[in-house]
């Protein structure tokens, strides 16, 4: 987002230490996100060395976006919620529900112009229910979204107990079209995911609503005293997360060519992990959606490396778990340090 342009007021050249100090004061929230970038770079470098130059290829990197597009969209929605210091456990189920709903509607012969909006609205509606529970009834986000998780999963099974194949060409087009540039390629699903990141970054950084999201996560009471519309921001965070769940359902359906009610079990935890690795603090108020994107890529890269090495999939979880631990400790240190100055 905005690069911190250091301007020294008196015009004299600031020492390197002074610059670093200014940078720290301005963007201490950026540190965990930077750490994620460094880890991503290390992962790339390590895999490249290990696989003797077979890893960093246009094909692999293009696939990284393609394979993780649904997770990226979920992480975008999750970033909103976590920034308000909430959590949304429902997104994996919402993705499954909207996916199977879309597949069913298309199988019934409805055009995509109806099926796709239905998926998105369905996801947003579940998000709205969770948001209202959290805001109006002061239910813990963990519990409210857990209810959403069960609700969405149940609805998915109501729609269909088994997988439904998608034959609709427009939907499959999202996945099969490959816009190529040399060996690089991108699919419409990838473009959707990147658009979601771009829109979210703009909203969070350049609109009052976005800044209110940060304010709510910083000090909800203060935000209210300052006359910000706290209630709307909190509810909308969950609506956005639910909407992203619907969008991820669309992407996953296109990606796999079918809807399946057991999709995305535990995916909400992957999304949370990616957001946290990407430097968003679980305590809210600090973080960037671009960081979440890096977090998704870190997650995806680990997965790819493990597949390449032919190692057990369980290593995936061990590595992600370890990374999470490291990141949470880093975050605690940051929070503790910034907390010292305002007792």
């Amino acid at each position: 987002m905005t690069a911190a342009v250091t301007t020294t007021k008196d015009g004299t050249a600031a020492s390197t230490a002074g610059r670093a100090g200014t940078f720290m004061a301005r963007r201490s929230a950026l540190l965990p996100a930077l750490a994620a970038v460094i880890i991503l770079a290390l992962l790339f470098a390590g895999a490249e060395l290990f696989l003797r130059g077979d890893f960093i290829t246009p094909r692999n990197l293009s696939a990284l976006l393609l394979d993780n597009a649904y997770l990226l969209v979920l992480a975008v929605g999750m970033t909103f919620v976590i920034l308000t210091s909430g959590i949304d456990l429902s997104v994996g189920s919402v993705m499954a529900f909207t996916g199977i709903l879309g597949a069913r509607l298309l199988a019934e012969g409805l055009p995509p112009a109806i099926a796709i909006p239905a998926m998105l609205i369905g996801g947003a509606a579940i998000g709205l229910v969770i948001g209202l529970l959290v805001q109006v009834f002061s239910v813990q986000p963990f519990i409210a979204s857990l209810a959403g998780l069960f609700l969405a999963r149940g609805l998915a099974f109501v729609v269909s107990l088994s997988s439904i194949k998608v034959e609709d060409s427009a939907t499959l087009w999202l996945q099969t079209t490959r816009l190529r540039l040399g060996d690089w390629y991108i699919t419409p699903t990838g473009i959707i995911a990147l658009l979601a990141v771009a829109v979210a970054a703009f909203v969070l950084h350049y609109t009052r609503f976005g800044r209110t999201i940060y304010a709510v996560g910083g000090q909800e009471q203060s935000a209210r005293l300052m006359g910000l519309n706290v209630a709307r921001a909190k509810v909308m965070a969950y609506v956005i997360s639910g909407f992203c769940g619907g969008l991820a359902g669309l992407i996953l359906t296109a990606y796999s060519g079918a809807g399946y009610p057991r999709n995305g079990i535990g995916t909400e935890l992957d999304a949370i992990a990616a957001v946290v690795i990407g430097g968003t603090l679980l305590s809210g108020g600090r973080g960037y959606v671009l960081g979440s994107m890096v977090g998704v890529f870190v997650y995806g890269t680990i997965k790819t490396i493990i597949t390449f090495m032919g190692a057990e999939q369980s290593w995936m979880q061990i590595i992600v778990g370890t990374l999470l631990l490291v990141f949470i400790v880093i975050q605690r240190v940051i929070v503790a340090r910034s907390g010292q100055k305002s007792p």
């Binding site: 910083g218 000090q219 108020g285 305002s342």
Partner: peptide, 12 residues
């Protein structure tokens, strides 16, 4: 004018 505790420490 609120006390300093009523501001948002995470923002600029």
């Amino acid at each position: 004018v609120y006390q300093e505790i009523d501001l948002l420490p995470n923002l600029s």
